[in-house]
Amino acid sequence: MDMEASDETDGDVTIDNPVREQRHRAAHALVQALQASGARSLPPKIGTSLTPAITLALLQDSMPAILIGDGLPTPAAAAAVQQGLREQGVQAQVEVQDIMGFPALQIALATVDDTQRLADLVMSRLPEPHAASHRLRTTLATAGVKAINMRVQGGVIEVGGISATDACTLLVILGGHLPDRIELEDWHHLEALAEMLSAALHTASGRVIDVVADPACSTCSATRTYEITLGPVAPEQARRLADAVESAVTPTSPEQQPVRCR
């Protein structure tokens, strides 16, 4: 049950700071869930009065199936989504809004609890490629490897680029051995690192994964690091890789420290 305390001033009902913080946390959880589903939303608006608590707009080309299915959002579809959410215990006002000339689905959630319920609902019904992608992304993040460009495309998971430093970390986590000297901003060393990581990923996932060295050009080296790009993986392959990483970074004793390559 929501505990949304409020202060009343000059007849206007406003929320206090603890409630505002609760709303920010719930909005973050919902955005994370929607991103895991492949949806893209505009930044959520945090309500400053009792209701709605949180409002956000989903772009028409990235609706999670749980909300609208295939096709463009229409008023009839928005009404159906609102009714469907109500049946799941989520109180929300759902409307179609024009965002830069394109229809978007605007969802105004009544309370923090409604926002969290929607986030949980989206996460519980992720299609398998998105569920596997989320598992791999969060497992890598726990290990200190950021795969911020990971996405699902055509039923497979495009891992995308990771920094050379994170590639080094991933190699060590998977049991690979680094040479005594490696310069992560040297093209030849980056190629060697890509080859070693390719072998380690093959062993961990059971199948070949494309691994390509992607050095920064001379004009962009000041704005981005040297990277290694990981090719597409099937959902079951992503899960095997996540299992391998999780097993390697889970301490077996209080004295064991997380693996890092820095």
Rank of each mutant, 00 (worst) to 15 (best):
R224M: 09
A192K: 04
E185N: 15
L67V: 03
D166F: 04
L201T: 01
E195M: 07
G231R: 01
S205Q: 05
C217K: 10
S6Q: 12
E8T: 13
E158S: 13
A194K: 00
R137K: 15
H24G: 05
G160I: 11
I46Y: 03
L197N: 00
S218I: 04
V156E: 15
Q93P: 00
T55D: 09
G155N: 00
I209V: 15
I148N: 15
A104K: 05
G161V: 12
L184S: 09
A204K: 08
A110I: 03
L58F: 08
A80C: 01
T223M: 11
A216H: 09
R23K: 02
V90Q: 02
Q256P: 06
M3Q: 13
R20W: 02
L171K: 02
A5C: 08
D16M: 01
P232R: 00
A132T: 01
V212W: 14
E255W: 11
V94P: 08
I182Q: 10
A234L: 15
H24R: 15
Q88N: 12
T115V: 07
D98G: 08
D113K: 00
A27C: 02
D10Q: 06
A234E: 15
V122Y: 01
C220N: 12
P52K: 09
A92R: 04
S62D: 08
A65S: 15
L136C: 10
V96S: 04
A36W: 11
A199E: 14
D70N: 12
P103H: 12
A5Q: 12
G71V: 05
R86I: 05
P127T: 07
D7Q: 14
H24Q: 14
K45C: 07
T219Y: 09
P18N: 07
H130R: 08
S133W: 02
V122F: 06
P73R: 09
L230M: 06
F102C: 12
D120F: 04
D12S: 11
R117G: 04
I162Q: 05
P254K: 00
V145L: 10
T229A: 12
L67K: 06
D16Y: 01
L109S: 06
D180F: 13
C220F: 03
L56Q: 03
